[in-house]
């Protein structure tokens, strides 16, 4: 199994400089569908699914490897190696922003710039830090996910019947994007929402763009400010777009901010 098959890697675009698009928790590479066409003329675009999401090879899931964000960063670097990407622009949404931070610290020659969309180095509140969530909030999400109380109601049937893959039921599912294995999603949520990557921020040397949405409950404005303060030389852009997914709700505004950042480099 190649890395490309494991992570369902898709390469497109007519430009030279690579751009790697990494989706966040709860989704797959389809979430870049409005943004990718805007960069294909100028870049070599790479999109992929994390193991357990989209059309990745679920069999490659390894609880231990993916028990921390480092495992996901390793996947990103393996993709870069297999495609021999150098000086890539890593565009990471949500939790993937921190995956990008970890990968860029480990191999700066591969990751030359970071675009962090709705990033957060720590979701939980802490002394002198406001992440936006209490431990109770996160536990509620994790418990609900692990008991199949959230998500596609169709995921319940395989949980009860013991069929690992809902596709085996033979039904064409109404929700065709962002397929996630419920068990893997549960662990990914745990790894995501309990992570703390604040100590990794000062080690970032790549030029970094932070895209902060208005009114984003997952990554509040205070978190964007924190990141800006702790990543040396970073640029913070506050978007008019609301919610947690500006690349879906306001792709033009998002693309413009990224393009400007890349031109300035």
């Amino acid at each position: 199994m190649t890395i490309a098959a494991r992570n369902n890697v898709r390469v497109s675009g007519r430009g030279q400089r690579p751009m790697v698009f990494a989706h966040g928790f709860g989704c797959d590479q389809n979430m870049w569908r409005f943004l990718v066409p805007l960069f294909e003329p100028s870049h070599r675009v790479v999109a992929f699914d994390y193991v357990g999401a989209g059309n990745s090879d679920t069999a490659a899931y390894d609880r231990e490897r993916y028990g921390s964000l480092e495992g996901y960063a390793t996947d990103v670097l393996e993709i870069c190696e297999e495609l021999d990407l150098r000086d890539a622009v890593f565009v990471g949404h949500s939790v993937s922003a921190m995956v990008g931070v970890l990968a860029a610290r480990r191999q700066p020659e591969r990751i030359g710039a970071l675009v962090l969309v709705g990033p957060s180095p720590r979701y939980l509140d802490d002394e002198g830090y406001r992440g936006g969530f209490s431990r109770q909030d996160v536990d509620e999400l994790l418990e609900s996910l692990e008991s199949n109380y959230l998500g596609w109601s169709s995921a319940m049937a395989p949980a009860i019947m013991g069929t690992a893959n809902p596709v085996e039921l033979g039904a064409e599912l109404a929700n065709s994007f962002c397929r996630t294995d419920p068990t893997i999603a549960g662990q990914f949520a745990r790894v995501t929402f309990l992570s703390d990557n604040r100590a990794d921020l000062p080690g970032v040397t790549a030029p970094t763009l932070i895209l902060q949405c208005s009114d984003d409950i997952i990554a509040p404005a205070s978190v964007g400010d924190y990141l800006h303060a702790h990543i040396a030389g970073s640029e913070l852009v506050k978007l008019k777009a609301t919610g947690h997914c500006p690349h879906l709700s306001a792709p033009d505004e998002t693309a413009a901010a990224i393009a400007r950042f890349l031109r300035l480099q």
Partner: peptide
């Protein structure tokens, strides 16, 4: 509920935008 809201932002809402 807060857990649902987090799921709404990370899954439901992007899915609706895409599909």
């Amino acid at each position: 509920t807060m857990g649902s809201r987090m799921y709404y932002e990370t899954h439901y809402s992007p899915l609706l935008a895409m599909q």
